[in-house]
Amino acid sequence: MTGTRQLRELTNDEALHRLGSVPFGRVVFSQNAMPAIRPVNHVVDGGAVIIRTHLGAALLRSVGVVVAYEADAIDADTRLGWSVIITGYARRVQEAGEVRRYEEMLQPWVDGAMNQLIRIRPRMINGFELVEAREEVVVT
Rank of each mutant, 00 (worst) to 15 (best):
W109C: 02
V93K: 05
E135V: 06
V65Y: 06
V40H: 04
F128Y: 12
Q94R: 10
V139M: 08
A58P: 08
Y102H: 15
M1D: 11
Y89M: 06
R38K: 04
R26N: 00
A113Y: 14
D45V: 06
R5E: 05
R26G: 00
V99L: 05
Q116D: 15
G112K: 10
A57H: 04
V28E: 00
E95C: 04
V49T: 09
E132S: 14
E104T: 08
G56I: 07
G3P: 05
G64C: 07
L16P: 12
V44P: 14
V67Y: 04
Y102R: 05
T87N: 01
R123F: 02
I74M: 00
E136K: 05
L106E: 11
I74D: 01
Q107T: 14
V93F: 06
A36S: 15
G112D: 09
E103D: 13
I51K: 13
G56F: 12
T140R: 06
L59N: 15
T87R: 14
W82M: 02
A90D: 10
E9N: 10
Q31C: 09
H17Y: 08
E95I: 11
H54K: 15
L10G: 04
H42L: 14
T78G: 03
V65H: 10
V110W: 07
G46I: 07
V63P: 01
P35K: 01
V93E: 02
I37G: 03
L117H: 08
Y102W: 12
L80H: 05
D111Y: 10
A96I: 08
I125A: 04
V138R: 07
M124T: 10
F29D: 06
R119K: 13
I74F: 00
G88C: 06
